[in-house]
């Protein structure tokens, strides 16, 4: 890979450490979004506040994760939050969360 060559570089598949680093940066960015009450980072109306409050985290996130992953995680975030809220609500209404043996915790819908 030369500095002035524009050859397309076939990226290596992310390995375990790279994946974990990406997830970590994502979690940092998302916790920053939690602080400023942004659910959907892809929503244009939040662009300003994200740039103001979480630009550092966002930059790190975008360096550690490839663009397709960033897009995927950002799209996934509102759904995860919605699901979490529904479960919390159910719990507040004294609904019992049944953990079936042999199943992952919170297996339904994930």
């Amino acid at each position: 890979m030369g500095l002035f060559r524009s050859d397309p570089v076939i990226p290596d598949p992310p390995n375990r450490s790279k994946r974990e680093k990406c997830w970590e940066s994502r979690d940092l960015f998302f916790s920053c979004l939690d602080r400023i009450d942004v659910v959907n980072p892809l929503d244009k109306k939040h662009d300003k506040i994200i740039a103001k409050e979480c630009s550092k985290e966002n930059k790190q996130y975008e360096t550690d994760c490839v663009a397709s992953w960033v897009k995927y995680f950002n799209q996934k975030r509102p759904f995860d939050i919605k699901k979490e809220r529904m479960l919390k609500e159910a719990e507040e209404q004294n609904a019992e969360v049944i953990q079936m043996p042999g199943y992952r915790p919170g297996a339904i819908g994930k």
Partner: peptide
């Protein structure tokens, strides 16, 4: 499916 954890899947 994805609903199983490792033990559940192994059992099945």
């Amino acid at each position: 499916g994805r609903q199983y954890d490792a033990e559940g899947a192994a059992e099945k």
